[in-house]
Simulated scan of single mutants.
Amino acid sequence: MNRFAITLAVIISAFLLSGCSAYYDLAYDQQHVEWETETPDQFPILTAVGYAPIEQQQGDSQQHKDLAAIRASKLAAYRELAEQVYGQRIAGNSSVERWALTSDSFQSSVDGVIRGAEVVRTYTVGDYYATELKLDFERVHRLYQSTTRQQKIKRVVYY
C-alpha cells in the first residue's frame, strides 16, 4: 500500500506541474500588438562617378566602343555606389621569408543591391566616358515601403 501511495503521489505531482507550465505559457502568449510606421526626418543623397577608357573597349566600330564604354562607366558608377552603401570587403595576404617581405597582395570585393539610382549624365572626358549617378535615400525609402512596410511597436496589450 505504501508503494501504491508513492506512485499515486508522483503521478499527481507530475500532472499538477505540467498543468502549471501550460497555464504559464498560455497566459503570456495572448497579446495584441499595435504597429506604427516610422519615417526618418532626413535622407542622405549619395553621388558616384564611374569612368571607362573608350579605346580599350572591344568592338568592330568606334560606335560599338563608345557604347561599351558608356555601359562600363555606368557599371563602375554603380560599383562606387555599392561601396558607399555596403562597404568593401578587403582580403590581404603577406609572406615573409628570412625576415624579408617576399609577397604582398590584397583583393577587394563589393556585394549589394542598388535600387532607385538615377543616371544624372553621361559624357566624355578626353579618351574616357564618365557616368554620374545619384542615389536619393528618400526615393529608396519609398521603394522599400512599397514592398515591405517598416514598422515599430506602438502598443502591446496583454490579456
Rank of each mutant, 00 (worst) to 15 (best):
E132A: 10
K65E: 00
H141K: 13
E38V: 09
Q31A: 13
V156T: 13
Y123W: 08
T147V: 15
G92A: 14
L8N: 10
A27T: 12
L135N: 03
Q62T: 12
Y158A: 07
S18P: 07
I114T: 06
N93V: 01
E38P: 02
W35T: 14
A14N: 11
Q145C: 08
A77Y: 01
A77I: 03
D25Q: 13
D104H: 04
T37Q: 06
G92P: 03
R139A: 01
K74Y: 01
Y158D: 00
Q84C: 10
L81C: 04
E36T: 11
A9C: 09
V120T: 01
T47S: 14
S95T: 14
D29L: 06
I6Q: 14
Q62S: 13
Y28W: 09
Y144Q: 09
S105Y: 10
Q30W: 00
W99H: 15
D25T: 15
Y158V: 11
L8M: 07
L46V: 02
L133Q: 01
T37D: 11
G59K: 05
A117H: 02
Q62A: 13
H64Y: 14
V85D: 01
Y24I: 12
L133H: 01
S18A: 05
A9Q: 03
L17W: 12
I54N: 03
R89K: 09
I54G: 02
Q151K: 15
D127L: 15
A130D: 03
I11R: 13
A76W: 03
F43D: 04
